[in-house]
Each structure stands twice: as C-alpha cells, then as structure tokens.
Write a protein that binds this DNA or RNA. Structure first.
Lengths: 345, 345
DNA sequence: TTGTAAGCGTTATCAA
DNA sequence: TTGATAACGCTTACAA
C-alpha cells in the first residue's frame, strides 16, 4: 500500500479555473453568507466536490487573521471531570467553527507557562485555563496577547480577566460543616503536599476554616505526594492517616479518587465506613454513588462549567467584533456546588 | 481592565530591524540547528526577549508546508483510557514539536467522517484514529490526504494503513475461556445495541466464539442502549439481564464501567458476587481493583498504546523525510492484553 | 554565515 | 454579484 506520494493538492485556484471564476468567488461560495448568486454557488460547490477540494485553513487564517483556535489548558485529562469540561467546550465552540487546542499542565505552573508560549504561536482567539496558580510570566504573556482569558474551576481572588467556576474554599468549608453537623468532631483532611496555589489547597483551607469556626482542631492534615491524588496514592494516604491520627472519626478527601483510596484503606484495616471512620470526597464522579458504601461528596457540574465558559467566550468574541473596542468588562460566572450526603458519612 | 486593544503584534521583521539583520537570520536564530554564528544568535535572541516576540506558526506552516499538527480522533474523552492514550501521544509527539488536534467521534462513524474533513483543512502531518468502524468516504478521504494513518485500539482485518492495538475479539474470547475454566457455564454478555463495526461488537463476537467452542450456548446477550455503556446504563442492563436470563451464573461486560453497573444491580437485587452471579469487565481501569469485590477484567495498556502509536508516527514521518519516497510499508504493532482474575469471578 | 527574492494558499479591499 | 490586486508573516532556494 505504497502511498501515492506527491498527490498534488487541489488549490482554490484549481477550483476557480475549473469553474471559470476567480478565487474570490470560490472563497465566497464556500461560506454561508458570501454575496454570490445561487447559481454560481451551486456550480462552484459542484466543482469543489468533483475535485475533492479541501480548503487550507492555514492560508485562510494567515490572510483573515483569524486562527479559529481556542486554547484550553487543563491540569490533566486523567480526570473525567476535565474530560467532560473539554467535551462541553468543544460542543459549544464547534457550532461557530472554533477548534480547541488542548494542553495539559500536569498541575505544574511552569509547564503551563511553557504551554502558553507554545500555544500563543498558533494565535488562538481566546484562552481558557483551569485555575491552579499561574506564574507571573504567564499572566504577563496573557496580558500581552490581548485575547480573552477565562479562568475556570475556581473564582480566584485576583482573576486575570473572566472567570467561570466556584469557590473551592467555600465548597470545602460547606462540606466540612455538613460533616460536623452529622456529629463528627475529629475530622481529618487528606490532600496533597506541594499544593501551593492550587484548588486542592483552597479546599484544605476551607476545611481548616470550618473546623476553626466550629471550635475544633484542624490539625489532622495528611498531605501525601503531589497532585493529583490517584486512588492508589489515596489509599497510601489513608494508611498514613490511620497511623498518624488513629483517633480520626471522619476524613474529608481532596477528591473522589482520593476518597476511594482512603475508603479502601480503611476497610482493609478492618474498620467500618462510616461507623469507625466516615469518608467524604470532592467532585461527585459517576462512580461515587456506586461505591460501597456510596460516597458523600461535593457535587460540581463540569459539563455546565464547560458550556458556560464556551458561551462566555462566544459573547466576548462577539462583543469585540461588534466594534465594542473595549470588549466586555471581566465577567464572573458562578457555578453551583451541592453537598451530596450518602452512606459513607 | 479594558484590554489594550490593537496591541500591535511584533513581527519577525521588527526583530530583524532591531537586531540589524534580515528576517532570514532571525528565522535561523530561532531554530536549534540554523547555520548562524553564536554571536548573532545571542544578539537576536536578546532582541526577541526584549520585544516579546512570539513567532507566528500560521505563517511558518504556510511557508514551510508543515503544519506541525497530528490529528487524533477518539470516540470520547469520557473514558480514562482514551485520556491516557492522548496523554501518552502528547508526551511523545511534543518532543519533536508536534501538536495534537483532538476530536471526539462519539462512537459515530458519520461524526468521524465530518471531523476528518474538518481536520484535513489544518493539513495535519499524520492522523491517528481509534478503530470502531469507518465510513467508506472516511477511508477515501484518508487515502487522498496521503499522510500516515494509524488505527489504534484494534487490529482491523482490513486496516487502512498502520495499526497499533490488539484483537478485541481474541481478548474477549480469552476472558470467556478463563471464566469457563473457573466453572461457569451459564455465561451472559452485557454490551450495547447498535454496535455494528465497533470494538464492543468484536468483544461480543469473541464471547460467542468461546462459548461455542466450549459447547455452551451463547444466547444470553443483553444489548442495552448505544455505546458507550456508562455505569448507570450498565446497572440498567444488569437488571434486564437478571429478569431475562435469571439462570445466568456469570456476566462478562463489554467494559469495566458496564461491569460496575451490573455488579451494583446484582448486589442490589440481594444476590452475591460472585457466588450467585460472577462479574467480569474489560479494560482494567484503576478503580477496578478497588471495587467491592475487586473486578476480574481484561487489562490493556492505554499508555503503551499511545506511546507506541506516537513512536510509529515519528518513524514513518522520518522515513518519508529521508527521501524514502515510498515511506514504510504498513506497520502493525500488537500490544499485549492480560486476563486479571479477581474476586468478582 | 548572511541576504535577496519569490512564493506558500488564502482573504481584504476596492473597483467594476 | 464578481474580479484584480495586494497583503498575511513566515521560509525556501539560491546567491553572495
């Protein structure tokens, strides 16, 4: 199956020639709204099909100064919630022909900075970042790029521009309160080390705040490995927890996977969930209601987050186009979170 | 925070002027290997930094006829295995500056065809598809594009070109045999309806084959909803199974999530796993060893799959560059699968 | 090692 | 409604 190398690519000029028109007319025929007679359009589209012409967007972008790209930077794809956010973003953006350039920061702000530099070379029309702390240079680069920036999955104190998300601090505080309400007093928090500036750290801070407000000591903090906690590292952390703070009656985990791991460690040790140690997570992944026992967790809506962010992008881009030279002032969309209490607590 | 609109972009010519050289010299300074004196290079790179110059890859691609893109089409991101494959692909491809253009087919070959047309406009240098059946036009488009094509996650009978994966049929057959070996006789298969041409169908066929080879009746087939089976639809299917084939002693599910759902349905009905009904899945997701009971499943290696595919791409691209006009003959890399028997069966 | 000139395949712009 | 022409910002190819 040797490839028919050098298969000469069909260009717009080939179509133009075959249809007996200029390239501009072909170009117009190819968009929905181009000012062109129905007759010429159908004739051209016929030729396009006959010649199997595939427009070259690289050339188009260069000429029109519109790349058609939106950059999306997330910590990792290895998390169904981010994956869902991406799918939601894609679905909305593709309705207007925008394509996503995806990057993974691995929860590392230096990697993020690197990626942004790289992505900016493709001249994206907007950029969506998941908040987890950014380097100074990242913020500089973004400002210089003068394209809309949307931070998602958090409502940062000092946002770069637009935001779509919720307060991880508040959400964690709420869950901690809910657990305290259920009668637990010796609560622990299970999270990552080296989480400075991340949403995980915000959740931990929310836990600490709620504990202090309730007059309880928030000293039971297990911080194991770097983000993200997997189920396996969650289990390790669970074992550390039981050894370090054997009096713990409830452990609130930075994420659902961490909670699955912790729960498995607890059960394996012969203790019962929730009777000996209650467990709660963060995220409400689909599996969480099917675990044994079903997991109490903070429900977030990754799908809604993605589509809200995408719609915001469209709105901002549209405002910029409409000559609104100053575009829109920074928008802040708050998405809801919900405490879902199940049998694990 | 009104945006400093019209922030005039710095071009290569600006850098050239500021450094007192031609754009070509700047261009050369910006690549690792450009023939240029160390002195000029450092001087130019200084200017680049000072002016915050960000090269425009759109222009670069048009001129060099290299987009730097590799298109990756997967059924969905809503599956940790695909996400891992993508991460592995990304890691390898980014070492040579290739960037991924990602698309989701939603397990729909028409959507795939549509995506391919769209993606081809960006002139990707290669394309990676997950096999789940393709339309005729898809194959045509790919052939005309004359770029390397790699099908992954299956070893199709009639591959388009290169492949990296395993036989879903064989894997499912092996697992079915393993289950039969364990003493089960009234096995059921739980999968999707409308799965023509998909890997799910191949797994079902593997189940049927193994049953027939063992002289057992493969009539217990539950086919519920369209791909992919979620945990929730898996649970629905599990209930249907127990109603339709109450004598079932073991159910092999098309995927791990389906198996979690089925297992939950079985447990909820008051039956025990594996004593009343054994359960097995396909995929070996991280969570599978932490379920109650731990899940027997077919282990695949999504990470290795992604990196093997990426390396293959690099090899093929390199061969093409080296003037090997005929490139490489179709390569077929087989990845291993492993039967992991746990307490659920 | 550096520079010049000519595109790359589109679309913006203006004119007809 | 259509067309001619000039970009778009870079790199190739060749010359110096």
């Amino acid at each position: 199956m040797t490839k028919p190398q050098g298969n000469p690519t069909v260009r717009m000029s080939d179509v133009a020639k075959a249809a007996g028109v200029s390239t501009m007319t072909v170009s117009r025929a190819l968009r929905k709204d181009g000012p062109i007679s129905e007759e010429t359009r159908t004739r051209i589209l016929d030729v396009v099909r006959k010649l199997n012409y595939v427009p070259d967007l690289t050339a188009g972008s260069l000429s029109s100064k519109k790349s058609g790209f939106v950059t999306v930077l997330l910590p990792s794809l290895n998390n169904l919630h981010f994956a869902q956010t991406v799918q939601a973003l894609t679905e909305t953006l593709e309705t207007v022909g925008l394509q996503i350039l995806l990057g993974y920061t691995n929860y590392c702000s230096d990697k993020e900075e690197e990626l942004i530099e790289l992505m900016l070379r493709r001249r994206p029309e907007a950029i969506i970042l998941s908040y987890d702390g950014h380097t100074e240079r990242t913020e500089e680069l973004l400002k210089k790029a003068s394209i809309p920036v949307v931070q998602i999955w958090e409502t940062p104190e000092r946002p770069i521009e637009h935001t779509v998300g919720f307060s991880n601090f508040d959400a964690a505080r709420q869950m901690t309160c809910a657990l305290i309400d259920r009668g637990y007093r010796k609560l622990a928090f299970l999270g990552e080390a080296h989480d400075a500036g991340t949403r995980g750290a915000a959740r931990r801070a929310g836990f600490v705040a709620a504990m202090e407000e309730a007059g309880l000591s928030p000293h039971r903090l297990v911080r194991h490995k770097t983000p993200p906690v997997s189920i396996t590292t969650g289990a390790e952390a669970g074992r550390i927890l039981m050894e370090t703070y054997p009096d713990t009656d409830c452990v609130f985990c930075v994420s659902d996977p961490a909670a699955f791991g912790a729960m498995s460690a607890v059960l394996e040790s012969g203790r019962k969930v929730p009777d000996d140690i209650a467990v709660a997570g963060f995220g409400n992944f689909e599996i969480s209601q099917y675990s044994t026992p079903p997991l109490s967790t903070v429900a977030v809506d990754p799908w809604r987050l993605g589509s809200a962010a995408a719609q915001l992008i469209l709105k901002v881009l549209d405002a910029a186009k409409t000559g609104n030279a100053h575009a829109l002032p920074p928008q802040h969309i708050e998405t809801k979170v919900e405490m879902v209490m199940r049998e694990s607590s």
